[in-house]
Nucleic acid binder design. Structure first.
Lengths: 235, 235
DNA sequence: CCGGAACCTCAAGTCTTACATAATACGAAT
DNA sequence: ATTCGTATTATGTAAGACTTGAGGTTCCGG
């Protein structure tokens, strides 16, 4: 079919803007050069001249890379490669208000998935100090009647510590990004079912399992601990 | 100490650039106005005038929002709000080559966490059609001696289907982002331990559990299924 | 009355030039 | 030699002009 081939050709005319092309070229340049973090790239003017476009276009392309966290530009040094802090970047752009409801719900679920799934890493990497700190945290565990804000604070401290124990920095960042979303979903009217405050496995119980149990036991206990959230999703 | 207080004061001097401020103002504007997707924001020139800065600055601020996926600008229409596709955005910026080793390893682990943690959602939301498709996929499960590429393809098909079953679109996007990273880490020399090809619980076994078992059983089976990866991390 | 072609308009995209700012390098002065 | 100031340099900000392409309008022909 000469026709479909032709269509394909038409499709392939680049509808992309100048900046798009430059951006692609720069990214490719970065990849090719096997750049390391801290390495610096040519000056804006040099790039402009060598690519035959204005400095404006170069700046816009560089700006994109900067927003994506690929580079960082200093006043005199020019631009240097940086290791992108993925979730830091998204975190900025992602306040709950701008996300649609489906995504919000998805992220709510994502937290549950993570905390159940990370059992093995907790057991593998926990140190005696970690355990001591966990015990200290649950030592102050408030009962259900206690002040609401204090409960929240305690929740964050405990679960945050668990993430920390996994030794997975990316996971922690991810959690920090999820945190406001989770809170938002939890309290906005997004989930129809009411908040259930039955207590299942407590933080104390989880720590007990971390100390004497297995990842398998922990997963089940955590699943149980999170039952209040699950029931709002599933019932 | 008057000194440290002074230092604190000095820290609080506004080191942010003009564009930073404008960006913040715009984001705030978006939040305040309770904008809906598809709504459009003022023209660049108007913004420039009303904020008292040059169009250049406005453009850069807008560009940031665009890169973050908050807005989209058309030739004549001006800029309109869009629902940000979080992982789509990062996916673009995030080829394995630009990530440092720790982050790569973190993301490798993240996949393991997700697949173990998502058990409940699979059981809750699977449909008979999903189950049939899973069976069809494992029906073609290659044995270990088979062609390497075919194995990869099969892996992706099977695990990808599991993500799909969870009904969590954000999770799927996250996985698609993780995929190349996982593959990269798996084959680069990042993990010292050799690839182990012992077979543990098979895909077939997982499907069997999905059909007749419980989330609890599935988590353990999946943990076992992924043992080859875990052992490379832990041993 | 309707369809559509030619034209117009507008806002974003691109380019150019000029100046401001901040970090570094280097040299002079104490 | 240390310190201060100055020159240099590359990014940051500004302003103005021109280009482009998508939307709207007019007006002609059916």
């Amino acid at each position: 079919m000469a026709f479909s081939a032709l269509i394909e050709d038409f499709k392939s005319v680049d509808t992309s803007s100048l900046v798009d092309k430059v951006e692609a070229k720069l990214v490719q340049l970065l990849k090719d050069r096997k750049l390391k973090v801290g390495d610096s790239i040519p000056k804006e003017i040099e790039l402009a001249e060598s690519l035959g476009v204005s400095r404006t276009v170069i700046r816009e392309a560089l700006l994109r890379l900067r927003v994506m966290g690929l580079i960082e530009s200093k006043k005199k040094k020019g631009a240097v490669i940086t290791s992108p802090d993925i979730f830091g970047i998204i975190g900025k752009s992602m306040s709950p208000h701008v996300l649609d409801q489906d995504t919000l719900r998805d992220m709510f679920e994502l937290r549950l998935i993570l905390e159940i799934g990370m059992a093995d890493f907790i057991f593998q990497r926990i140190t005696p100090e970690d355990l001591a700190e966990l015990k200290k945290i649950v030592g102050k565990e408030p009962d259900a009647t206690q002040d609401y804000l204090f409960n929240i604070e305690h929740e964050i401290a405990f679960h945050g510590k668990l993430y920390e124990i996994t030794g997975n920095e990316t996971l922690r960042k991810f959690q920090r990004m999820l945190l406001p979303v989770f809170d938002y979903v939890h309290h906005s009217g997004l989930l129809k079912k009411q908040i259930n405050n039955k207590r299942f496995v407590s933080h104390r119980g989880l720590v007990e399992i971390i100390e004497n149990g297995s990842p398998e036991m922990f997963r089940n206990a955590m699943r149980n601990h999170l039952e209040n959230h699950f029931s709002r999703l599933f019932d």
